[in-house]
C-alpha cells in the first residue's frame, strides 16, 4: 500500500496505509478470537464510545478557540459527565448507588 499510496498522496497516503493496516490487524484478531469460540460482548463498549463522541462533538463545536489547558480539562470533565449520564440512562439509577460493575 505504501508503494502505491506514497508516490501519489505523500504523507497522507503513508498514514492511510498505516491506519488501514491497523484495521486489518484488528479484523484478523477478531476472526482468530472467533475461531477460538470467543465472541466479545459489544454492548459494554457503547457507553465509553458514545461518551467520547459527545465530548469530541462539544469540543469541536464550542471549544475550538479555548486555550489548550482549558481544552484538556474541559474535555476530561465533559467525558466524565457524559459517561456518568449515559451510564445512568442505560441502567437506571445513579452510578454511585450501584457500584462500578453494573
Amino acid at each position: 500500500m505504501n508503494l502505491v499510496a506514497i508516490p501519489q498522496y505523500g504523507i497522507v497516503g503513508a498514514a492511510t496505509a498505516t491506519a488501514l493496516a491497523e484495521g486489518t490487524i484488528m479484523v484478523l484478531a477478531l476472526v482468530a478470537m472467533g475461531r477460538l469460540g470467543v465472541h466479545p460482548a459489544l454492548r459494554p463498549l457503547i457507553t465509553p464510545t458514545a461518551a467520547a463522541a459527545i465530548m469530541a462533538a462539544i469540543l469541536l463545536v464550542a471549544g475550538r478557540e479555548w486555550a489548550l489547558p482549558v481544552q484538556i480539562a474541559g474535555g476530561a470533565a465533559l467525558y466524565a459527565a457524559a459517561f456518568a449520564t449515559l451510564h445512568m440512562t442505560r441502567r437506571g439509577g445513579p452510578l454511585w448507588s450501584r457500584g462500578w460493575s453494573d
Partner: peptide, 8 residues
Amino acid sequence: VIAAGSSS
C-alpha cells in the same frame, strides 16, 4: 479534536 482540529 484538540491537536488536529483547533488553532491552539
